[in-house]
């Protein structure tokens, strides 16, 4: 009797366990390559560990965090990360929105134009960094040629070696690379704008700005919000363009959180402090994500959804 019951449940088993069989490899992969390294990073952050001999670890508790958070240089890193992120996101979203609105009309070659505008996003970041270094070159770069051609500045301007101008140059490069992504995403959201509503508003005598505010913006707002979150997180994690262009310099003026972390680990060989910066960075990314969802839930409630 008992035996037969067992056989019956066993017969049911395959279907019941199928979802777990489907997800098991992926779940294991995420545990090994995300959860375990995260845990290791946390453990490392409570130790003094040198890259020269990572197996030799000395437990130091929260000292690394105290050192990092009390370090004026790290305050500068946080300030630069904030400036970099805010300008990347507002520039990326703003320019992306303008270009999307510009491309959102019927003309011959519209498909080709929409494809060509994605070139910056498709180009590998290291190649982008390399060609912008060349274009920003003080003596032979095309940017200075353009500026002197326009009569703005006859003197060759030093961009990437100048503490005042390196961050703007890196920001310019980054925004050039990311605006197409925003444009393309906003363009596809614009297809959801009801043309009857827009036409009705125009017939009612609304000018372009009020049509945008009343009809277009409410439709694309959720997409723009998610876009802003993605661009924020991508700005926090961007390494390649900044590292190749400036390595965080000159004088630390482009030293964002990830660059600082990398320098601590692989230039100063100090894994413990680097891991502490990493944990701070991961927490920042998670907090930003959480605040975003909290804000968008509140906005949805306010909109009565």
């Amino acid at each position: 009797m008992r035996n037969s019951v067992k056989i019956q449940t066993r017969r049911k088993d395959p279907a019941r366990f199928l979802p777990y069989a489907f997800i098991a490899p992926l779940a294991a992969y995420l545990l090994i390559f995300h959860a375990y390294p995260l845990m290791q990073e946390f453990i490392l952050s409570t130790t003094y560990t040198s890259l020269l001999d990572p197996s030799l670890r000395e437990f130091v508790g929260l000292d690394n965090y105290r050192d990092v958070l009390g370090d004026p240089e790290f305050h500068k890193v946080l300030r630069i990360t904030a400036i970099y992120t805010v300008i990347c996101v507002s520039g990326g979203v703003g320019l992306g929105l303008l270009v999307a609105l510009l491309l959102d009309f019927n003309f011959r070659g519209r498909g080709i134009a929409r494809a060509l505008v994605t070139i910056p996003w498709a180009a590998p970041p290291v190649a982008v960094a390399l060609i912008f270094i060349w274009m920003f070159n003080a003596q032979f770069g095309i940017f200075n040629d353009i500026l002197s051609g326009l009569g703005i500045s006859a003197e060759p301007i030093n961009w990437l070696d100048d503490p005042q101008r390196a961050l703007p140059a890196v920001l310019f490069t980054t925004i050039w690379q990311i605006f197409p992504f925003s444009s393309v995403v906003i363009l596809s959201a614009l297809q959801g704008v009801q043309s009857e509503l827009r036409e009705a508003a125009i017939i009612d005598g609304a000018d372009k700005l009020s049509v945008f505010k009343a009809v277009v913006w409410p439709t694309i707002r959720p997409t723009v919000a998610i876009l802003a979150l993605l661009l924020t997180v991508w700005s926090l994690r961007r390494f390649d363009v900044i590292w190749v262009m400036t390595q965080g310099g000159p004088l630390g003026e482009t030293n964002t959180l990830v660059i600082d972390l990398y320098r601590r680990a692989f230039v100063y060989l100090d894994l413990g402090h680097a891991a502490a910066v990493g944990v701070i960075g991961v927490c920042t990314a998670l907090v930003v994500t959480f605040i975003y969802f909290w804000l968008s839930a509140r906005a949805d409630r306010a909109a009565g959804k």
Binding site: P37, E41, V233, R237, V258, A265, V282
Partner: peptide
Amino acid sequence: LPEAMLVVP
């Protein structure tokens, strides 16, 4: 999660 933040572990 940023790649560069997991590069150390």
